[in-house]
Design a protein around this nucleic acid. Sequence first.
DNA 1: CTAAAAACTGACTGATCAATCAGTCAGTTT
DNA 2: AAACTGACTGATTGATCAGTCAGTTTTTAG
Lengths: 194, 194
Amino acid sequence: MMSKKKIILKHATSLFARQGFKGTAMAEVSKLSDAASGTIFYHFTSKEALLIAILEHVKAVIIRKFEIYQRAHQFENGFQMVEGAVTYYLQLAAEMPDEFLLLHRHFPYQLAEVNPECRRHLEEVYNCLVDIFENAINTGQADGSIGMLPARKTALILFSTVDGIVRFNTYKLYDAGTLYKELLACCSRILQSG
Amino acid sequence: MMSKKKIILKHATSLFARQGFKGTAMAEVSKLSDAASGTIFYHFTSKEALLIAILEHVKAVIIRKFEIYQRAHQFENGFQMVEGAVTYYLQLAAEMPDEFLLLHRHFPYQLAEVNPECRRHLEEVYNCLVDIFENAINTGQADGSIGMLPARKTALILFSTVDGIVRFNTYKLYDAGTLYKELLACCSRILQSG
DNA sequence: CTAAAAACTGACTGATCAATCAGTCAGTTT
DNA sequence: AAACTGACTGATTGATCAGTCAGTTTTTAG
């Protein structure tokens, strides 16, 4: 049985992601969670504290999932590691739409400017994600499957591209699935050695 | 002398971009514009109508600026046209931070789901921007400076990358300037012929 | 069992906000 | 000089919302 605190966290994540922070009334969260409004403030000191708790949880889930993924997969070379990372990133974004939508909204970054804890959570998520690309590039440069580009900067550009495609999907401007093949082809061209 | 309506539009753009739609009180707009709250509702029927008017104006400005840019520049070949488009996009985003911030927020796309006029404005902005990349790629494929990739899809991926870099800047996660050289290098690798 | 602690409830409060509307006033037309 | 126009004003209103609190139920520990 899921605790009421976790139920509240789950529904608040979904509502904040879909309707925004200011656009979500605590009464909506309490209704969806089948909890009295007072219960939310019993578990979380304020609406802002609820948002921080959500971000902390999202961070923990994403970091854990990527660690599990990395341990479970073996690649022939660094280039295939990058391809794997791109594919898994798209897959994860489809699996956790609320969490990715939340990270694509502006209000967490606005709060991060005045709240160091919030800033830390967001930085850790982004570092985790960019590190995956960077590690794969470093591996590929060591085994010769990837050309000698600046690893961190190329990782940032790659991440920016993949994340942009996910955003197209979110905003319903273009379907990510139809770009998958071309996205991998672009990665291949960017990273090719020689 | 700027009309009061334009002054309101200007300050509302800035406030909506920085604080969000729900996060901005009409009283703030009226204070910054040095107008009575009633004046805003005299010119715009509602807060939502004000947002639509802002998006229409942003669309008009961006489309006009890119038309002027394209007429004023001559390129040796299609590949240099792409480089020019990337450079100009980054430059424009730095010149019009409020407008780009607004387009990077989630609420215009949320409104677009229920308001066809809003959806039209946003689509026209994105079509204008992606078309610039697509035209350049088509030109390059005709003159041999760009390889035979699917033009529209490659344009979308390129746009997604460049726009992602602008977003890094907005969210203060990474400075776009330091990625400029590597960004152009990636474009070159993606588009190279042969 | 009992007593204390923890979890939970929902009516209530004060603040905030979008939108309204009766009215002012400078300028134009009849 | 009378009638009219349209930009502008700001006090007011009804709705909404985050957060509180006094009290109830459930769980835990001795």
